[in-house]
Amino acid sequence: MADLLKIENLELKFNTRHGIVKVLDNISFTLKPGEIFGVAGESGSGKSMTAMALMRLIDKKLIHSIQGKIFFRDTNLLELPEKEFRKLRGNKIAMIFQEPMTSLNPVFSIGFQITETLLLHQNLKPKEADEKAIDLLARVGLPDPKKRLKNYPHELSGGQRQRVMIAMAISCRPDVLIADEPTTALDTTVQAQIFDLLLDIQQELNTAIILITHDMGVLAQMADEIAVMYAGRIVEQGLRDQILDTPEHPYTQSLIACIPKVDVRAEAAGKPPADLSEIAGVVPPLAELSTLKGCSFAGRCPKVFDTCSTLKPPHFRLNKTQTAACHLLEK
């Protein structure tokens, strides 16, 4: 099938107090219609920045330069004038955010906020938009949708607000839906409901979803393909099973080791549960990254050796669908 979204060598640099800093380094991936593409990584790895760059939502004052290409079907989004891009944003490419509690405008009703998107992108009369908004709210599983239209965000719970955000995002049947940690702020049972909803929508509308999360466990259930990001770079990418079963990059391996395992039989036998593992250290600050010569993970990598601190590892192709950027693979 033809590619829906194709990102080629995306590179983003910021102006900061510490000088020019590379935020995204050589990001490339493709998205097919209806595919769920997972982006994993810790805080500060550049997951959200990639999404914000796709949506062109990054504050222009921060941007020093942005290079590469982002093809949506045949149009390069980075070359599209702002006015033209606005016709796609919220319409064919939509996004839901990490913070459902604060992502809705507190002074406008739910109905207003949903119909605003509909009226903007679709040729609807206000009454038709209202009806469509009711359908959408019912679709995302909000009880009593007609009454909800008149509600204000503060009258809804976090999970309900995220449902409203999803209703808004899918209102124009987008081809691409970017979900940036959509359940981080919600409790566990609600998380599962939201993911079920996203899966339903993906199947019903054949929407491709870019699912950004730090939780490999979620990607194991949802994603078709996974990219693992570290310090602004994709360090490993492949089909879900490849990443989960045969991870080649030490960072991916550590991330997978962090998925908590529940061994029911061991617990029944009275054995204490296994300790949760963690990756020692933190993602190096951006300002340090730009002066780094070698691999950005070298400082935390359990398998580090000489070359790692002197040379940046290129992407090694392991097979038709999997690549990883680690010097170990050269051997």
Binding site: M55, L57, R86, K87, L88, R89, G90, N91, A94, M95, F97, E99, T102, S103, L104, N105, P106, V107, F108, E116, T117, L120, H121, M165, M168
Partner: peptide, 25 residues
């Protein structure tokens, strides 16, 4: 604030974002 980012993500023009979603708050 986050809801201004949401308003931009909807595809609204900067004028609407600032004077409708921003000013009202």
């Amino acid at each position: 604030s986050d809801y201004i980012r949401t308003a931009r993500a909807k595809g609204l023009s900067e004028l609407t974002v600032v004077y409708k979603h921003g000013l009202r708050n």
